[in-house]
Each structure stands twice: as C-alpha cells, then as structure tokens.
Design a protein around this nucleic acid. Sequence first.
DNA 1: CAGCATCCCCGCAGATACTG
DNA 2: CAGTATCTGCGGGGATGCTG
Lengths: 143, 143
Amino acid sequence: MAVSTRAVSRAAAGEPAAGKYDTGEAMCPYRLVLEHVTSRWGVLVLIELLDRPHRFSELRRAIGRVSEKMLTQTLQTLERDGLVHRDAKPVIPPRVDYSLTGLGREAAEQVRALADWTTDRMDDVEKARLTYDEARASRTRAS
Amino acid sequence: MAVSTRAVSRAAAGEPAAGKYDTGEAMCPYRLVLEHVTSRWGVLVLIELLDRPHRFSELRRAIGRVSEKMLTQTLQTLERDGLVHRDAKPVIPPRVDYSLTGLGREAAEQVRALADWTTDRMDDVEKARLTYDEARASRTRAS
DNA sequence: CAGCATCCCCGCAGATACTG
DNA sequence: CAGTATCTGCGGGGATGCTG
C-alpha cells in the first residue's frame, strides 16, 4: 500500500526507522537531510549526477554494486528532499532520467569536494593507519 | 583478544563488515574513508571537535543520544585514519582529550560546510517534501 | 571517568519473482 | 527498462555489567 511504501522510502538511505531511536526526543530534522546526503549511496548518486543526468540503469552501472532496490530507495529519498529531479518519459520501453535540481547541485558540490579531498589525502590516511596498527601491535606484544 | 578487537574497530562507523559486500571485487579504499567521515556519528564528532578539543564525556553530551560504544568505535576509526588525535593522560580518574589533527581539520571543515548548507536549506527541503507528498497523495486517490 | 566485553534485537539491504 | 512486492539474514548498534 501507499502507506507502507512511504515507510520504506523514509527508512531509505540510512535514515533511522523512526522507532529505533525514539526514546522520547525527536531527532533534529537537519540531521535527517544530512544523513540522506551523506548516506552510503546518496553520496555516490549525487557525485555521479553532478557530471550529467543519468538514466536509472546508467546510474547502476556508474556506481557499481548497488542493488536495484537501494538505488530506487536512495533516488526516491533524494527526490522527496528536492535534490534530484525525476523525469519519466511515457514511452515503451520506459525511460527515466535523473538530474540534479538547483538545490541538489549545491549539495552535490559540497559532497564532491569532500570526496575529492578524500582521494587526495588517501595516502596520508593509509600512512596513519600503518602507524596506528604498528603501535597497537607493539602494545599487544608488551602485555 | 587483540585480533577480535581490531575486527570491531574496523567494522565501526558504518564501514561494511568486509564480508557483506565481498562478492568478488574489493571496495575501493577511498570510499571507506569517505564512509568513515560521513558516517552517522563521524560527521557529528568532526564538527564538534572543530570548535575545540573535547573530553570523551564532553563529546557524549555535546552530540547527545550516542551510545558509549558507538562513540568509542567512531573515535577509534577516526584516530586510526589519522583524523583525530587521542591524548590519554595517565591520571586518576582517567582523562582523555580528543582533538583534530591537521588532516582531520581539513576533513571537518568540508563536513561542516555540508552541515551548514543543510541547515541553511532546510526550509527548501521541507517545502519540496510537502510538494512531493502532496503529489503522491493525489496519485493514490486517482488509482 | 574512560573503555572493553557480552548479549541480543530489529531493520538495512540483498535476492528473487512479478508488473506496466 | 524501470520499477514494486515479499522474504530472509546478519550485522549495526543499544543495553548492561565489569575493569583500570
């Protein structure tokens, strides 16, 4: 039904299922949007759409290893938040194009900046990890 | 044991547990770092530490609603990646201060920019949601 | 106070089958 | 091709109890 569909959609993209953390206080709304944008697949979708609009299956291939279901859910969440525009052409076979809205482009640029930073600094991170693991290993030997 | 401890640490902060998505290909490393940084609690920790160094319990209170376990795991992951510096003073009662490294500060600034954008555009997002839900509701009535 | 160990639940996400 | 509906597992993450 429509209701359960909405429930699924709201649960998508890393958003908590509204009962799990509902220990009295409500989660502040901006964190929800932030989690949609920074969600596992949300990040990759936004970055991919920043290059150019994509069809559904193009996105699947571009991202790789995302299940059809998760991609659908992620796109629905982002569409609902007004970040992604969905253009379904009434043709056979169906053709649906996804693109960024103005709002979505702003978000995507922030996200891409972060992703670019990550790739740039990747080697620093890996060095840090080696140092950390080294220290841990020697601590283990000492005990 | 040390081995299992490391396994827990690696699974922290939204990082997949190394077997779940291991359908043959390895996940590219930069996505892992990206997911640490954009993880549920990672985002909030980085933003909080951008203001000033925090003690463990200060972070807990500042973030709110984060379990001790998840905060520990998140901090360990970020420390291992070289983004967070852990300073444990050998005193009683124990006192541990967490601060950003140079690398971590760069990441945190990107993340905060994204968070700021989210709060700024929050009302646009909510308007978009109303529009979206409205459209869905009328579609349901039509069918 | 900081953090580790253990238990356990439930919800995310993958797999599969079916529709327009 | 672009979805929806349903089932299932397993791992994230909360709760609790214990150590230094």
